[in-house]
């Protein structure tokens, strides 16, 4: 009955947290009773195919769990576009989209205020308006995407095509993020942010007497935002160590953002100049070599970020497949003979 354990593990992820253990234990008891009944009828243990048939009859884990959720709303304009089965996931996606947009606005506002580009009141008012403006298109896209998922589920009867054999193995122990890792991350990010915020006051810290090209200025605010996002991730995982899916997703987002931010530097060959200082032919020659070295340093950094992006994408894929079938938030132990009390 290994498949039943795997199935329960998968359903569990999607259940409302407050009742997760209770519902999973009940579902487990019912499934095992059903399987045992069938075994008694046949006079032998169930074959894998028979166990598969039993689970397929119940349905894919996310859909089964959705029926237990209290928030079984729908989205309808004349006709129903998002049904009660998909609605709970749609609701999560809408909340996540709004949270991400609010976080981006929040960190952007902080960065703009701290860097002195805008005063606090002006930045807050602008952030509020921009959030409303910014949210329309993503929410529309999320709604369309979920309407298509709902349509696909019904039209192609996708719910009937899933195979319980594809469920991941039962994890005996969830891989929590060590608190020490989160604390170390917070300390490192805070030190970096403080240093970064202090940079404008000490312009010679990085380049010395050299004159950086104007393109370096484009790096300041985005880097600050990325640092705040990573800091926020470490704070969240400190209090939610079970959320091991979060770092790869944040890592993917921040590394893609870094790729975009650093890319214009690859188009610029004069990253520093000798404006206002020694411009002898020898110094120009050295500057040329320095710019070349800087260019290769930037290129290597960009390639490094690209590799990290791929690694994070793989991590996200693994987490997402785990989330879909419950691997990531797997119970610390399989629910066997279990029930509260």
């Amino acid at each position: 009955m290994q498949l039943i354990e795997r199935y329960i593990q998968a359903v569990k992820f999607w259940l409302p947290e407050a009742q997760r253990e209770d519902i999973a234990a009940e579902l487990h008891a019912n499934l095992v009773s059903q399987a045992e009944d069938r075994e008694a009828e046949l006079g032998r243990p169930l074959h894998e195919d028979e166990e598969v048939a039993l689970l397929k009859q119940l349905g894919p884990p996310p859909l089964v769990a959705a029926r237990y959720r209290p928030d079984q709303g729908t989205v309808a304009f004349g006709r129903q576009f998002i049904g009660p089965l998909v609605f709970p996931f749609y609701r999560v996606a809408v909340k996540a989209t709004l949270c991400i947009l609010a976080a981006i606005q929040f960190f952007t506002t902080i960065a703009l205020v701290l860097s002195g580009r805008k005063d606090a009141m002006q930045a807050i008012i602008q952030a509020g308006w921009s959030l409303l403006d910014l949210a329309i298109m993503p929410l529309l896209l999320v709604t369309v995407a979920f309407a298509l998922i709902d349509y696909g589920l019904q039209k192609y009867r996708l719910a009937e095509r899933w195979d319980p054999r594809s469920l991941p193995m039962v994890k005996q122990q969830a891989q929590d993020i060590p608190r020490a890792t989160s604390i170390a991350g917070i300390v490192i990010q805070v030190i970096f942010i403080v240093w970064w915020l202090g940079l404008p006051s000490f312009p010679n810290v990085i380049f010395g007497e050299l004159q950086p090209a104007p393109i370096w200025q484009t790096l300041y605010v985005p880097t600050l935002i990325i640092a705040f996002v990573i800091l926020a991730q470490h704070v969240v995982t400190l209090f939610r160590p079970r959320w091991s899916w979060l770092p790869p997703f944040v890592g993917l987002g921040t590394s893609i953002a870094s790729l975009v931010i650093v890319y214009p530097f690859l188009q610029t060959h004069a990253l520093v100049s000798l404006e206002g200082i020694d411009q002898t032919p020898l110094a120009e020659l050295k500057l040329g070599k320095l710019n070349k070295a800087l260019y290769y340093a930037v290129l290597s950094t960009w390639i490094g970020i690209l590799i990290a992006t791929i690694a994070y994408a793989v991590g996200c894929f693994r987490s997402a497949s785990g989330l879909l079938v419950g691997q990531q938030s797997a119970p610390t132990k399989p629910v066997v003979n279990g029930g509260p009390g």
Binding site: A29, N30, S33, Q57, L58, G59, L63, V64, R67
Partner: peptide, 18 residues
């Protein structure tokens, strides 16, 4: 749950577990 479903089915009323 399971015996309830079975009894209802025996009485002619099939309900899926889901």
């Amino acid at each position: 749950g399971y015996t309830l479903r079975k009894d209802l089915a025996d009485l002619g009323l099939e309900i899926d577990e889901g």
